[in-house]
Amino acid sequence: MVTEQDVTNAVVELLRKTVVRLPQDVEDALRKAYASETDEVPKMQLKAIVDNIDMAIKGNTPMCQDTGVTIFYAALPKDCKVDVGKGIVEGVRKATKEVPLRPNAVHPVTRKNPGDNVGEKMPYINWRIHDKDYIEITVMTKGAGSENMSQLAMLTPSQGLKGIKEFVLNAVLRAGSNPCPPTILGVGIGGSSDIAMKLAKEALLRPINERHKDPEMAKLETELLEAINMLGIGPMGLGGKTTCLGLNIEYAYCHTASLPVGLNVQCWAGRRGTVRIHPDGKLAYPTHER
């Protein structure tokens, strides 16, 4: 039987893998961008990024010092008896010491840092029940430089599709060099204010080389990405062809009088990882098997 300790150990390993190595789709996109830049300055920025990816893997070291705050998505089998939440919290505490992760989580007002990335509602866990027999835990280690550029717009329905495009383009222009471009953008359309932001973040869980299954949304993803890459902000905002590596949209139906749009900005280090804990205790890391 799977125990809380098993969850903790799986989470420590998951966090290690996640902060050390990027998912294949993101790594591929960065190498492709490096090959495509011709000017000296953007080429050098992407070379530093690609070299850094290789060095992090070789040394089993976090690729970026900002190991973020830990946002979890947990899917449990219907008959789950183990306290997965407790296991995750302990896993974060242990990984902070062992990987190590930077102690980033602080009290929002006093700014006091407990030193272990654990505090009120942090790690933050999104829960769901699925019809599988295994526990699936996904983590995003979200750095602040990019997260700070995220935005919500409560548009009016009359602003429509143009309003959505306008909002995303302006947010990218306003973010400029700050979120460590080339970025990955998650756009959440519809729902309500909180749902749009939640969808924007969840959009970042999909590989960037997969388009939305709804052709209209897929078209919008491609169109926005192409337009953003015409801006010439470039890697680290120093100019160049690659401003955005990928853009994913998720949507939900919304009130007839609303059009909420959320944008979640992710730096080039689009770190996400998943572990599956099977009933026999076997572990699989689908994002990190290659």
Binding site: K162, L169, G176, S177, E223, A227, M230, G232, G239
Partner: peptide, 23 residues
């Protein structure tokens, strides 16, 4: 400032991006 130089170009490029989006 390199960033200021890039910003001038980005302002110019914004027109093309907006045209691509039909704005």
């Amino acid at each position: 400032s390199l960033f200021a130089d890039v910003n001038v170009k980005v302002k110019e490029n914004e027109k093309k991006a907006r045209a691509r989006l039909g704005l």
